[in-house]
Design a protein around this nucleic acid. Sequence first.
RNA 1: CGGGGUGUAGCGUAGCCCGGUUAUCGCGCCACGUUUGGGACGUGGAGGCCGCAGGUUCGAAUCCUGCCACCCCGACCA
Length: 492
Amino acid sequence: MSKKLTSRSTDYSKWYNELVVKADLAENSAVRGCMVIKPYGYAIWEKMQAELDKKFKETGHQNAYFPLFVPKSLFEAEEKNAEGFAKECAVVTHYRLQNDPNKPGKLRVDPEAKLEEELVVRPTSEAIIWNTFKGWVQSYRDLPLLINQWANVVRWEMRTRLFLRTAEFLWQEGHTAHATKAEALTEAKLMNNIYANFVQDFMAIPVIEGVKTESERFAGADETYCIEALMQDGKALQAGTSHFLGQNFAEAFDVKFANKEGKQDYVWATSWGVSTRLMGALIMTHSDDYGLVLPPSLAPNQVVIVPIYKSEEDLEQITEVANTILIDLRKKNRTVKFDNRTTHRPGAKFAQHELQGVPLRIAIGPKDLANQTVEIARRDTLTKETVHLNDLINRVEALLEDIQQSLYNKALTYRDSHITEVDTFEAFKTALNDKGGFVSAHWDGTTETEDKIKELTKATIRCIPLENKQETGNCILTGKPSKERVLFAKAY
RNA sequence: CGGGGUGUAGCGUAGCCCGGUUAUCGCGCCACGUUUGGGACGUGGAGGCCGCAGGUUCGAAUCCUGCCACCCCGACCA
């Protein structure tokens, strides 16, 4: 394995794959399309989980867990949802293996052990959850029902990529039931907004909140809200979605309640989710040719201390200083690691921590001991400064905050400079191919036009931004009148 | 599922066309020594059912047949 990462400009896709593996985030497994998330990658995911989980609970949601398997008859109950996912479902048909009489030492599926009813491995859990909710709701007093689950799901994708699209992935899926349409709509928008705030504040990734067009909508939803981010290669990435499901699932699973007037009514529903795909967004937004760049809020180690020494005595003194720093920073709730491995030299440690995106590196050597200083290097700008021990803790605090903010600002500047308004189809194609990013254009509102544009350019409508400016114009493809611009992009 | 390609040590590879000593090289790994302010160096060492099965041959990584797996380009997608 070569030491240097393939550069982004050489081959963006290769850069991404190498980075994921070399930074020790994840690797491909023996199962086609499924990844192993390694401890360092999982630590980042756990930080995301912790923060999201807190936000969900603050807004009144509770965690629960539902089965991995969905009986086929339940799965097919909501027709549009079933149809939308049917092509990518793994299905369990048997429950037992046996020794293969023809091949010693090998196993085969026991043909006698065929299931009466096939079990679908959940690609999403609406079916099993709504079948369960049926028993939980009788009265308006049981509502709203605000449930979230952290789970794995399986979608049998044809082509997979680490974190961005894997056959099995981890996510959270919220499922809520409400007495009124207005309440459910408010919930769907609220959760989309929580996602937006999380991604912007914690992941330092700017997003556009919007709604999906009919063809991009979740199968079984009446409206899909989303947050869309822009990657460094100019492609858009859907970072989260929140669906207003209307009464579709309530009708399919017969979930009725008695309202205040004593009349039976179907409940109104939402579902919303973000997945390990966020890891992909994180990587592709901030990282550079030296490796991963992590915002301090998500870094498993926010600061790493590297000793530089010749003698054992030096190391002892450095260790003493390092331990003081460790204690002081931990008091500030910062995560710090003292990398005192004797098996690697400083240069190798520097390179590794850069590759893994540690926001700040503190180096302490003999010169520093003599001067009561340390050297601080920031990962995002790759700049170094020498700081006196007396000022160190405040300086670290300030730098960590600055890194968090400047990563966001940098990404925002890039994103905003890659939203191009166009009024003709020629300009549309030029913007898309020469510059990339979002292209803001008028569209006649039909699925046919959307499909045609996709066929001609590979670009899809990522979203209609919330609170979109209303302005009259003409569809770039058909010339038909339009009342607002929508955002197109090539997407992951 | 259509089109193209590749399987040789943990990883990346040479050799294959044109069969012939002990299968090449780099990274990584192990031991010892010297090193340590940006991926150290030297010496020594370990590691291979050459994807699997069959065939041709005195002899197969190399030729033939079948199978399997993976990758790339399409169609599908959080």
